[in-house]
């Protein structure tokens, strides 16, 4: 695929992806869509890069985009990763960004003349984590359908399944990449925000294994999915597998074990006072139980293996 539409271009992942694709001679055109301004200087003002400002939560904008620049530039692949970064926001607008934008895009792809590949960047958060479930999370692992799940999680599950449901039903090959959490600023990472405190609380008696990814690895996985015709769901693990307590130590923070029931109110207080993003209710399960994405399918079908640590510069 040589003509690519990328949504969410202003995120660290979007920028990394654009940089990577522009280094390839086979890339003929990149169309980016962003609500915010994108600084193109880091891309050397490459003529292959085209920028559109559109609000994908608006049906009219999506239609204009797909019938206009996408068709005119003969875009053949779409990389879409809906992400409302703030974990504090909720409501219809957030849902529109997380879910409806994906649906609108998919609807336009059903009869699009040029697009033949759809890469959807999903999240490991869609998987349920419980003591009786496998530690190693395969693509067939149960999803988090709990009614108690926060909107952020429910939206991600709904959006993921909306894409999965259309596999084989539209004239596009679809790859859903369920990616490990990217440990980087401005990427919506809960763990990143958690690690910004001088003191990090964790449930006493538990020190679960977490797996985190670098922006570079996720961008690499997307590039490999673009090169491939493989369809289906693929788990994309990161290179770093370590206990939560050790992750905290790597960031030179103090890890304090606290009785479980006290953590949620303490973090709610922190959020209320400092307007920080970390929400314990979003992370309760993974702060108790091990859960690591099994990347064997991505390795076999896409040739993806995590290589770049997200912890570079954070040595013990």
């Amino acid at each position: 695929m040589s003509r690519i539409l990328i949504t969410g271009a202003t995120t660290p992942l979007g920028k990394e992806l654009i940089s990577r694709l522009l280094t390839l001679e086979t890339t003929e055109a990149i169309l980016t869509v962003a609500r915010d301004e994108l600084d193109t200087s880091r891309f050397g003002n490459d003529a292959r890069l085209h920028i559109e400002h559109a609000d994908l939560t608006r049906e009219r904008d999506v239609r204009t985009l797909m019938k206009g620049p996408v068709r005119d530039l003969k875009i053949d692949a779409v990389v879409h990763g809906p992400l409302h970064r703030s974990a504090l926001d909720r409501g219809k607008k957030v849902h529109a960004m997380n879910v409806e934008s994906t649906r609108s895009l998919l609807m336009r792809l059903q009869s699009h003349p040029t697009v033949r590949r759809f890469i959807y960047r999903s999240f490991s958060e869609v998987y349920k984590l419980e003591d009786h479930l496998p530690t190693l999370i395969g693509e067939d692992h149960p999803l988090e359908f709990s009614r108690k799940a926060p909107q952020r999680v429910r939206d991600r599950v709904e959006s993921d399944l909306s894409v999965c449901a259309l596999q084989g039903m539209i004239p596009c090959s679809i790859a859903v990449l369920r990616c490990a959490e990217v440990l980087a600023p401005k990427s919506g990472s809960q763990l990143w925000d958690y690690l910004q405190s001088a003191v990090c609380l964790r449930p006493a008696g538990y020190n679960p294994i977490v797996n985190v990814a670098s922006v570079q690895d996720i961008a690499s996985a997307i590039c490999r999915a673009l090169e491939s015709e493989a369809q289906g769901v693929f788990n994309i693990p990161g290179a770093d597998t370590l206990p939560l307590g050790e992750l905290v130590s790597r960031f030179a923070k103090q890890s304090i074990p606290v009785p479980g029931p006290l953590i949620a109110p303490l973090y709610r207080l922190r959020t209320g006072l400092l307007r920080t993003e970390f929400r314990y209710d979003l992370n309760r399960a993974r702060f108790h139980f091990n859960g690591v994405l099994d990347g064997r399918r991505a390795k076999e079908a896409l040739g993806y293996e995590p290589r770049m640590s997200a912890l570079a510069g954070h040595s013990m």
């Binding site: 530690t135 290179a239 770093d240």
Partner: peptide
Amino acid sequence: MKGTHPANYDAFGF
């Protein structure tokens, strides 16, 4: 699956 981390934990925490 092994981590790239100096202390080499596997996915199960071993």
